[in-house]
Computed example of a mutant assay.
Amino acid sequence: MIIMEYIDGKTSAAQLQNNLPENLAAQLSEILSVLHTGGDVFGDLRLPNIIVAKKQVKLIDFDWAGKVGLAKYPIHLARNISWPTGVMALGQIEKATTLTCYMA
């Protein structure tokens, strides 16, 4: 089960690129570890889908998330985004690809 919460504010990591928390990578690693330990993947790990509220990192937009082995990318992927290797229309969302999405 994934529990969602209301996050007060609209400060996305994309808007804070020069003022991101120093431990952003560590927080993301912890979030992904929790998801992966629970058998879940998050397939759209990009700055617009990361919210920073009171220096705490949170993920939003779980449309491309689900159980390992079941979650797939949508049929239409934005062409203006340089997706990591392995991301393709209707392709399976893998843990390894999830980790590299943030770097793209």
Rank of each mutant, 00 (worst) to 15 (best):
I51P: 00
L24D: 10
V57P: 01
A26I: 09
F62L: 09
G69K: 10
V52A: 03
K67Y: 05
I3Y: 04
A14D: 00
Y73V: 12
D44P: 04
K67S: 07
N80D: 13
W83L: 14
A25V: 14
G9Y: 00
W83T: 11
T85M: 13
L28M: 15
G43K: 08
E5P: 06
V34A: 13
I50F: 11
T97V: 15
Q15H: 06
L99I: 14
L99Y: 09
G38T: 09
N49Y: 05
G39A: 09
K58F: 00
A53C: 09
L47R: 06
N19I: 07
A53F: 03
T98V: 14
I51R: 00
D40N: 15
Q17N: 09
I3L: 13
T85Y: 14
V68S: 04
V68T: 13
E22N: 15
K58T: 01
A78K: 08
H76T: 12
R46V: 07
K58S: 01
I93G: 05
L90Y: 10
C101V: 02
M4K: 03
F42H: 05
W64M: 02
Y73S: 13
K95M: 10
W64F: 11
T100C: 07
I81E: 07
A71S: 10
L35A: 03
Q56F: 02
A78C: 11
E30L: 15
I50S: 02
N80W: 14
V68M: 08
K55E: 02
Q27N: 15
L24P: 07
T97N: 04
G43P: 04
T37Y: 05
K95F: 06
K67N: 08
R46W: 02
G91S: 15
D61E: 12
K54D: 01
L99N: 10
S12I: 07
E22I: 12
N23W: 03
S82L: 14
T85D: 14
P21H: 05
A96H: 12
K55Y: 00
W64D: 00
L35H: 06
I3P: 00
I93P: 04
Y73I: 10
P74E: 03
T11Y: 01
H36A: 12
K10N: 04
T97P: 05
G38M: 07
V52T: 02
L47V: 08
G91Q: 13
N19F: 12
G9W: 00
S33C: 14
V34I: 11
L16D: 00
D8N: 12
A25P: 05
M4C: 03
I81N: 07
A14M: 08
T97S: 12
A96M: 08
L59A: 01
Q17Y: 11
G86Q: 10
G86D: 03
S82G: 08
A25M: 06
W83F: 15
L32S: 06
Y6S: 13
E30S: 15
K72Y: 01
A71W: 00
I60M: 02
L77I: 11
H36S: 11
A13M: 07
L90R: 15
N18F: 05
N49S: 12
Y102E: 07
R79C: 09
G91Y: 04
